[in-house]
Amino acid sequence: MTGPKETIAQLIENVPYIAHLGLVFNLESGEFTTSLPYKPDLVGNPMLPALHGGVIAAMMELTAMGQVILISGSPELPKTIDVSIDYLRTGKPEATFARATITKLGRQIANVEAIAWQSDPLKPIAKLHGHFLMVT
């Protein structure tokens, strides 16, 4: 079995879109989190300006997938069955962070929740709830 670092490295290699977003996986602190540094092409509303909701969703979904492969220990990419996103606050043009919790890990399906925040972890900007199919 591979370690968490190798598992995440494999995820990044398998998903070119992670590099496109610029998503960073943090395993150092004991708790698994991700961070998304701000870049101008992530903006959805240039008037405010605000991050694109899809970018925040994508970040939380990839965090959820990362958490699934870390907990299940399987390097196989989980397949997204469905995700539901609630937008709570406007995403400001600054760094965003996310973490995910597995509510239930079944034999085939993982039920996962994720939240994203910016400068204040107590003020989430969005939350995600999703089901992932684990391919064995």
Binding site: V15, Y17, G53, G54, E61, T80, I85
Partner: peptide
């Protein structure tokens, strides 16, 4: 990627 699809459909 599902994330890109979400941004697309949201738009």
């Amino acid at each position: 990627a599902s994330g890109a699809v979400i941004t697309f459909v949201d738009q």
